[in-house]
């Protein structure tokens, strides 16, 4: 636990940016968004189709070009890191991730492993090597296509997608397989879409600070649409290592009407690993 001890001593550093993994987070929705008429599918269930979340909202906009190039043609990157330092950026993000008040509670005997993975994350975190982040670390979908019988979740990060059939049991083979995003099935609980996911490998983590899981993990995702907002809740069940199910902080996904936000995510080609000189990663 030495890294936690060290970080406790640094916990009073001001000006930390709040960090979240994945995409699709948003600010507090307005009353207008919450009270907007909610479209429904032919079976009467809420239509979750749409582009959700604010990630990418600045992409493709000329505003950035106009405001960041000054009159002489020089370009100024407007960093908001503490003291505008990329080092502070990664350190602050790392510390903030470790100091979330809502962290998965492991059984006592597994915290040493969490600590080891955190300290050695540059080598141990497969997501650093361009492997998929997996569910639930990949965050909320950026786009949803929904019908009464199936739901498709699209993610900008690594151009990934998930297929979710509704109202059927897990496929016996797929749900015992070991994959990054697991086997998903969906059902409606009132007006809330509930997706049950199992069949994971043990490559992914559920959070940046070494939060590992077993291949018996089961994830429950809940999508509740109100007006033009989706409330996204995730609960992670992994009783072999977690003392209790972990409920992630709720994500609020706002309908995004910007037509310019859907862009291809370039391939991930890891080339820095051989040049890492210390274990520091924030």
């Amino acid at each position: 636990m030495r890294i936690l001890t060290l970080l406790l001593a640094l916990a009073s550093v001001p000006g930390l940016a709040f960090a979240q993994e994945g995409e699709g987070g948003g600010n507090r929705p307005t009353a207008e968004e919450l009270n907007a008429p909610m479209p429904r599918l032919s079976d009467g269930k809420p239509d979750l189709s749409g582009r959700w979340g604010n990630q990418g909202a600045n992409f493709g906009g000329n505003a950035a070009l106009q405001t960041r190039f000054d009159a002489t043609g020089n370009y100024h990157n407007l960093r908001n890191d503490r003291k505008a330092s990329p080092v502070n950026q990664e350190r602050d993000a790392g510390m903030t991730s470790r100091f979330f008040s809502n962290v998965p509670m492991y059984k006592p005997e597994f915290w040493e492993r969490v600590d080891y993975l955190d300290v050695n994350g540059n080598a141990e975190d497969s997501n650093f090597k361009c492997f998929p982040a997996g569910v639930p670390r990949m965050g909320a979908p950026m786009k949803i296509l929904a019908t009464p019988t199936e739901v498709v979740l699209l993610y900008q990060q690594k151009n990934t997608w998930r297929y979710v059939p509704l109202n059927r049991a897990h496929d016996k083979l797929n749900s015992r397989d070991q994959s990054y995003m697991g086997d998903s099935v969906g059902r409606w609980d009132g007006d809330t879409l509930v997706i049950d996911v199992e069949g994971f490998n043990e490559e992914t983590w559920i959070g940046w600070p070494g939060y590992f899981h077993t291949n018996k993990m089961r994830v429950e995702e809940r999508f509740r649409r109100q007006g033009n907002v989706i409330f996204y809740d995730v609960t992670v069940h992994d009783p072999d290592v977690l003392a209790e199910p972990w409920k992630m902080d709720q994500r609020v996904l706002r309908l995004n009407r910007n037509p310019l936000v859907q862009v291809e995510d370039p391939p991930c080609v890891e080339s820095d690993g051989a040049h890492m000189y210390t274990k520091e990663r924030g």
Partner: peptide, 23 residues
């Protein structure tokens, strides 16, 4: 020391810049 780089996750840059470069 063969360690690996952080992927640039939206909103969080886990670059491990300091592990590789000396500012």
């Amino acid at each position: 020391l063969v360690t690996l780089l952080a992927i640039a996750v939206p909103a969080v840059a886990h670059h491990a810049m300091q592990a590789e470069f000396d500012q």
